[in-house]
């Protein structure tokens, strides 16, 4: 019996870790464009969708899952460059314009995918089959891969921000765009690369969650609101905040899902998020 009880807790911890990982992956790109660059990108969710569709397409055409992941990132980055160069760069000082334009883009992507692929879900085969046994209970191996991949992605992003030449350029531009220009930093180029990078991260998130979710054109939209909660609750502009925010929102959601109906748990998580923002307006880990 004690072994069984332990197994239940272990499974709970793994489930929390999975939910947190998914949230973290999706919120990471948003933490950069919204948290750091202050761009309300309503199409962030659709970049996640595009990532998942790309993996599916690569697999259908005989490519491996991991090739699909790489392709998803490339497609995400390319879409990001297109969006930034084509639309967002004209609207940096018009936040309402950014919301409307990116919302429009999100609708175009959704409907475009619907027209091209139809409403039935796409299929992505998991690259890692089978389950792993923990104290008599089985846990899908792929979820462990996802957890590791999520934490690696956050760590690598953190290292790029803290240690690289581009990271310093971005931190400088975010703090003071005019001073960055005076210091010789091409701020337009930095914004473009950052936007492309965060779009690639969104597509990466979509690719990684693809094997365990229903891949339909509207899948990304469902992630948009929770991702914004994560960034706001965690603290806009801080990667540590994204981890903290994902842990709080994802952890609470998973634990509550065990106890109460899903709709109620969603509402309770939202109330918790409101409370956190009331008590810590700058988030759990302010920048």
């Amino acid at each position: 019996m004690p072994v069984k009880g332990f197994a239940v807790y272990f499974e709970l911890v793994l489930n929390i870790a999975t939910t947190v990982s998914v949230l973290m992956l999706i919120a990471l790109g948003l933490a950069i464009v919204f948290g750091l660059m202050n761009i309300l990108n309503m199409a962030h969710g659709e970049l996640v969708t595009v990532g998942a569709f790309t993996v599916s397409l690569v697999q259908v055409n005989g490519g491996s899952f991991w090739l699909g992941v790489v392709a998803a990132m490339a497609v995400g980055a390319a879409l990001g460059v297109l969006l930034e160069r084509g639309l967002i760069r004209f609207l940096y000082d018009r936040p309402m314009g950014v919301i409307l334009v990116t919302w429009g883009v999100s609708l175009i992507i959704q409907q475009g995918l619907l027209l091209s692929f139809g409403p039935s879900p796409q299929i992505v085969y998991t690259p890692v089959e089978g389950s792993i046994e923990f104290f008599d209970s089985a846990y899908p191996r792929y979820r462990l891969v996802l957890i590791v991949a999520a934490f690696l992605t956050v760590a690598v992003t953190g290292l790029i921000m803290a240690r690289t030449r581009f990271g310093l350029d971005l931190r400088t531009v975010i703090q003071n765009r005019e001073v960055a220009e005076i210091l010789g930093i091409d701020t337009r180029r930095v914004f473009m690369i950052a936007f492309a990078g965060s779009s690639a991260l969104a597509a990466l998130a979509g690719a990684l969650v693809a094997p365990m979710t229903k891949i339909v054109p509207t899948m990304g939209a469902e992630y948009l609101a929770p991702s914004f909660f994560v960034v706001i609750v965690g603290g806009a502009g801080s990667l540590a905040g994204t981890v903290a925010g994902s842990t709080l929102i994802g952890g609470l959601r998973t634990v509550l899902d065990y106890q109460v109906p899903s709709t109620l748990s969603q509402a309770l998580v939202l109330i918790a998020a409101v409370l956190v923002v009331r008590l810590r307006p700058r988030g759990l880990v302010p920048a």
Binding site: L168, D169, R171, T172, Q175, N176, E178, V179, A180, E181, I182, L183, G184, I185, D186, T187, A287
Partner: peptide, 30 residues
Amino acid sequence: AHAIARLGMALVPQGRGILGKLSVADNIRA
């Protein structure tokens, strides 16, 4: 401005334009 800076013009702006959240070394590195 960034191209003019690279040509060899440096401005120390009014209010100094220090990047407060960066370290002193990172300010110079930037």
